[in-house]
Design a protein around this nucleic acid. Structure first.
Lengths: 159, 159
DNA sequence: GAGTTTTAAGAGTATTTTGTCTTAATTTAA
DNA sequence: TTAAATTAAGACAAAATACTCTTAAAACTC
């Protein structure tokens, strides 16, 4: 698996926040229910994003979490790096410590190119463009629910 | 981590076998000692490669394991797929089941392109070219040892 | 055929990842 | 000022991954 579960949850949550119409706090409980993610686990993931400054949280009623910057200013690499770290983008494909141009493994050059391709894609994709696309085309952000349903329904809705 | 430890061990072992001068059986014990991999663990990994037909094994003295095809006919994708499976190359970056052109997530297109890039690199890299490169430039195949040392020393060597 | 060398197979252990539960601290609002 | 709502933090549990150990089966050598 390329990204850890926590990282995937972090990306989905970030995308959800970026697709909100207003920029107020959204409670983690709501995110966890709408995205079908374990509440307590998500809490810990999002703490990593607040500790790195990508999000800010607020306690109490009307509290929750929100992006510190506009979705258009946050790229996916920032989120991945905050949760999974940058090892994926620095490590050797054959697992050799310290693999690099100075002491390469036979696969180093090719892998470095591919690795940079992943990084480039993540760095050049921001939350806003994904949220826009998701809303316009009502794409999925959870197993069964698209953006449309997600943004127009309360959790408590019986429907 | 992109590849599991087992997969990395499988790749290193395959590369080691492809770099042998003769095509006889090499004992798993020798591979495990030279590549510094746990013997019993490696045994299980290589069993996956023999069960998929990429390698063949032989018991008893003079036994061991060897590639069924020439190193130039084995690409890295075959090895990765045999050990880690093809999920990496089919799964959604956001973890949504069944993500694809029909029911995409907002990231699907971009991720599919990147994913195919990884696959393309693996499919278009064969063991022989890596072994050749490794031997010519005496690159590393283990943390401290290069190809040269590896191929010219017996395990029992006191040196 | 007996003994040795090797892979095969399975049970068991350790570590990491993933997820759960409880309590504390903070904030709002009645 | 009390109660409710929320995040923060830490202990705990489950599952997956990584690794170890023991025994069995096969093949070679004498």
């Amino acid at each position: 698996m390329l990204l850890s579960k926590g990282c995937i949850y972090g990306l989905r949550s970030s995308l959800f926040l970026a697709s909100q119409e207003n920029d107020g706090y959204v409670s983690i409980r709501e995110i966890s229910e709408k995205l079908d993610i374990s509440f307590h686990f998500l809490t810990k993931i999002l703490q990593q994003l607040t500790s790195t400054g990508l999000m800010e949280s607020h306690k109490g009623p009307k509290g929750g979490i929100r992006l510190t910057k506009s979705g258009s200013e946050v790229n996916l690499f920032e989120i991945v790096a905050a949760i999974d770290g940058v090892e994926l983008f620095t490590e050797c494909a054959l697992g050799l410590p310290g693999c690099g141009v100075k002491k390469p493994c036979p696969l180093h050059e090719k892998w470095a190119g591919t690795r940079d391709g992943i990084r480039y894609m993540l760095e050049n994709t921001n939350l806003m463009e994904l949220a826009k696309k998701g809303k316009e085309q009502n794409l999925r952000i959870t197993e069964h629910g698209g953006f449309e349903w997600l943004l127009n329904n309360d959790c408590n809705d019986a429907s």
